[in-house]
Amino acid sequence: MTRYLLRRLGHGLLILFGVSLLLFILQQAAPGDFLSDMKLNSQISEGTAKALRAQYGVDQPLPRRYGRWMLSVAKGELGYSFAYNVSASSLLAPRVLNTLLLSVPALAITWIIAVPLGVVASAWRGRWLDRFFSAGTSLALAMPDLLLALLAILIALRTHRYPVGGMHSVGAQDWGWFARMKDLGWHMALPVAVVVIGSVSPILRQVRSSMIAVLDSSYMRAAEGHGLRKWTLLFRHALPAAANPLISLFGLSVAMLLSVTLLVEVVMSWPGIGPLLLESILSRDLFVVIGAVMLSTLLLVIGNLIADVLLYAVDPRIRVQA
């Protein structure tokens, strides 16, 4: 067990390492940076800019800069924000929490909806219920997430029942904790709903198709031949057997969900990583960009690790190989 998990952990670290390397190589190819944009500002002299470059180590070769960055990662700083003059991590940390606040409930709700519906659709394959789901998921897939987020804003504006974007009501910091929680939940409702609608369809479809593969297998036919009850067949026998590809999908669904979350954050002004990332791209605040992407990768790696643990728990074949 520990060996298997250590191996998966090592794999996750490797991905993090690969992504950081990739980002640095890309960044090397980039024309201009925050400091060279500064040159356009006539108030900053050539000498100051040069000194700043030296201070931040921007003038040094790639491996050196990568080494410096790694060192700052070890210190928990993730590099430096040129624009805010603070460590990148101090900018990112509260944002990550907000992103988690949005994506974790959305992830949970997505799966809680997708699995039973997918099982039901597979059990009544080709019947009206299945067709209804199939049409519904097609529509949801075809609907751009952007449009969904904008529609949510429209609903908020028209009905006045939901806040139009943001995370807290004005003055909420003075309220009691219960009122603050209620306020937060009220602000979360629409963004979470959009993220769920945007990511539930592919998962539902995958649940359906892996269930169908299992339901067509000879052991399910044998079990049916033994006279098991339908619900026992579906949820006790077929679902665990179909779980393997679904758990792998869990890791991927985290990635997908993070993408949708980013869009929703930007459109619905949720103070997560997304808006910060966008802002720092436009101002060429290099380390914040790298930090934001690295953090999203970290979330993904964690999601994959959870999937690995689940896989280990569910599939006896994995347990034996490990």
């Binding site: 044998a222 057997a241 006896p316």
Partner: peptide
């Protein structure tokens, strides 16, 4: 009762 062809495939692989 039914006994089918492939013994390897007649039992659910993920259940004891």
């Amino acid at each position: 009762a039914l006994i089918s062809q492939e013994p390897a495939l007649a039992l659910n692989p993920v259940l004891p």
